[in-house]
Simulated assay, not measured.
Amino acid sequence: MTSASDAAENGAPKGCLGIIAGGGRLPGLILADLKARGEPVHLVAIKGEAEPELAASADIELGWGQIGQLFKSLKQAQCDRVLLIGGITKRPDFTSVMGDLGTMRRLPAILKAMIGGDDSLLTRVIGIFEAEGLKAVGVRDVAPALLAREGLLAGKGPDGDAQADMALAYKAVQRLGELDIGQAAVAIGGRVIALEGAEGTDAMLARCAELRRIGRVKTKGAAGVLVKAAKPGQDLRVDLPTIGPRTVELAKAAGLAGIAVEAGYALVADEAETAAAAKAGGLFVFGLTRDGSDAA
């Protein structure tokens, strides 16, 4: 018997795409892109995570303890694929998944998924959906236009110092990613001054601004580069590194000269607005090749 996802791969009409939306603007941007192309979509907003406006327009809003209702909803909408997108501010604790009967039946798999680093967590969550016959897809599959392009995306091209910092920060992100810790680093003057941990990119940039304020990092004028890149071996269907206007704002406050992302493996939310913010703030935004060769 051929499944809906198998049929889609063989050229038959695709079924509905289920979007499981966390926080941030990205789920809304992807939803708008898909609807503009006439793609059938079933939006599930994660209660307490999805943006209020998006949650209000969702087909259904569900909490962590409503896994059974989630799969029932996806089945009723005839979804054959699922996209997990958006930020999650905190992992559910054990009590939050004690919900409906469908949750209880899947509890061993859910609890197993909650063990490990961020990337292993997300990969295990994908496994739960695939065990239900749903094909997990990523932004690269459904909205590739949102991925960063190679080369200069905004502002003036990086000078020699910025290129050196870009290359160093990219190497740091690769090492950081091998430990499944974070996707971002900042280098200034040939020195890595910050690595992203559980606090996320925004908090890391705020920390960089504080280092400048207290004199631990001393430069004349804007200097240094934020680099965001996918972790080595990362499952590219989830948690791609993302930048947007807010990233530019915080990078400017931290006194950085620019931002670099991994072309084809990172997302630029609100690209036009991001580029305009970078130009106004005197920063560059650059799309690195996967091996970082253009940052050397």
Score class of each variant (00 low, 15 high):
Ile126Cys: 15
Lys228Trp: 06
Glu132Pro: 02
Leu122Asn: 07
Ala277Leu: 03
Gly258Phe: 00
Val44Gly: 08
Asp239Lys: 01
Lys156His: 15
Gln66Ile: 03
Asp100Met: 05
Pro13Thr: 04
Pro40Lys: 14
Arg149His: 12
Gly87Leu: 06
Leu122Glu: 10
Arg246Cys: 09
Asp239Leu: 01
Lys135Tyr: 06
Leu111Ala: 15
Ala263Pro: 10
Gly63Glu: 14
Ile115Tyr: 14
Ile188Ala: 09
Phe94Trp: 15
Leu54Tyr: 06
Arg213Ala: 07
Val248Thr: 02
Ile193Ala: 00
Phe129Thr: 01
Arg105Trp: 00
Ala266Gln: 09
Gly22Thr: 15
Leu205Val: 13
Ala198Met: 12
Ile128Arg: 02
Ala148Glu: 14
Ala230Met: 09
Lys156Trp: 13
Asp80Cys: 08
Arg81Cys: 06
Ala223Val: 12
Arg212Ile: 02
Gly68Arg: 00
Arg149Thr: 02
Gln174Trp: 15
Arg81Gly: 03
Ala162Asn: 08
Arg191Asp: 13
Lys220Ile: 06
Arg106Val: 00
Lys35Asp: 11
Leu256Asn: 04
Gly244Met: 10
Ser5Arg: 05
Gln183Val: 10
Glu271Lys: 09
Arg81Gln: 11
Pro52Gln: 11
Arg213Tyr: 12
Ala109Met: 07
Pro241Val: 12
Glu51Pro: 11
Glu39Phe: 01
Thr2Glu: 08
Ala162Arg: 07
Cys208Asn: 11
Thr219Arg: 13
Ala8Asn: 06
Gly11Val: 09
Leu205Glu: 04
Phe129Ser: 02
Glu130Gly: 10
Ser73Gly: 05
Thr95Ile: 15
Ala203Asn: 12
Ala209Pro: 13
Asp59Ala: 09
Ile19Leu: 10
Trp64His: 06
Gly258Pro: 03
Lys112Asp: 15
Leu250Ser: 10
Gly102Gln: 02
Pro245Trp: 13
Gly182Arg: 01
Leu153Ser: 08
Phe71Leu: 08
Gly221Glu: 03
Ile67Ala: 00
Gly177Tyr: 03
Pro40His: 10
Phe94His: 14
Ala7Tyr: 04
Asp294Val: 09
Asp118Pro: 11
Val192Pro: 01
Lys47Gly: 15
Ala222Gly: 05
Leu240His: 04
Ala113Gly: 10
Leu111Phe: 14
Gly200Ala: 08
Ile193Arg: 00
Asp159Ala: 03
Glu49Thr: 08
Ala154Glu: 08
Val82Leu: 06
Leu121Ser: 12
Leu43Tyr: 11
Asp141Pro: 07
Thr95Arg: 01
Ser57Gln: 14
Ala266Met: 10
Ala45Glu: 10
Leu62Glu: 12
Ile88Lys: 04
Leu134Tyr: 13
Asp6Ser: 14
Val44His: 11
Thr123Ile: 13
Arg213Cys: 10
Thr103Lys: 00
Gly258Arg: 07
Gly65His: 08
Met166Glu: 04
Glu196Cys: 05
Ala167Asp: 10
Gly244Asp: 12
Leu211Ala: 04
Val125Trp: 14
Lys220Ser: 09
Gly65Trp: 12
Gly138His: 13
Val41Trp: 11
Ala295Gly: 12
Thr103Val: 00
